[in-house]
Design a protein around this nucleic acid. Sequence first.
DNA 1: CTATGGCCCTGGTTGC
DNA 2: TGCAACCAGGGCCATA
Length: 279
Amino acid sequence: MPELPEVETTVRLLRPDAEGRRIRTSQVTWPRTLGGLTPARFERAVAGCEIARIWRRAKFIVMDLERRGRSAGHLLVHLRMSGRLLVEPDGVDPGGYRRVSLALDRGTLHFVDVRKFGRFLFREDPDEVLADLGPEPLGEAFSSTWLREALKRRKRALKPLLLDQGFVAGLGNIYVDESLHRAGIHPLRRSDRVPRRSVDRLHAEIRATLREAIEREGSSFDGFYRTPEGRPGSYQDQFRVYGREGKPCRSCGRPIKRLVVGQRGTHVCTRCQPAPRSL
DNA sequence: CTATGGCCCTGGTTGC
DNA sequence: TGCAACCAGGGCCATA
């Protein structure tokens, strides 16, 4: 499932083939992907634009569009569960799950998405979509001081809070489970009751986990996530808890347990991450 | 403010 | 073997 590291990898590998390219035409095979805009209006918005810059905010891939050097709006792509973004040479069919394609002046940018949860949005103002997101966990605003105070202000179980994109932006189920294990904190611990030392550790482990995962081009399993070049990531080999139910904890050897927290599969080592007494 | 549950979707897995 | 029921999962929305 694409989270911050997979989206960051996608952006980095997409840039050489898409930045600076001009959009000739668009083809939309599953209109819902556009999130309300009709394919005709979408076509009018993007045709003739240059993809001037590609960047990432949370799990969104943002493409700044320009006409004659002036801003002409933005494309905001969310991969959700199974989305992929890639550039293929003209005439190469990316398969049956193509939802949106943009013919460029060299090659074609395809949005491929088996489960159809992904979004390919056009907005004049990207803040319509991005404004309510929390800080980037790899950015400066996400300091341990900030995290300490932000956790104190809320009274929620830690895992659902970390998954809330309005709290911190970019974490998903995998990297939250991994970070919590590395920090030795149970996912159900109330956010305002995490000891200071543990908060600092959590802060450090979130950043370390994301950095290491980016370095390995994300995580692949289930056959879903691939880089734009078709390669799987390799961070799944480093998983300490995610998808490792019953297997020994890499720290203490006790079998990893799977529980459900806020309707999400959740993986813990009950020795390394002791359950809170209450809640 | 927080928690819960439904919905969107499909392919893979499970159960009979 | 065949087929139906079930499930995962991110974000959003309605409800309590």
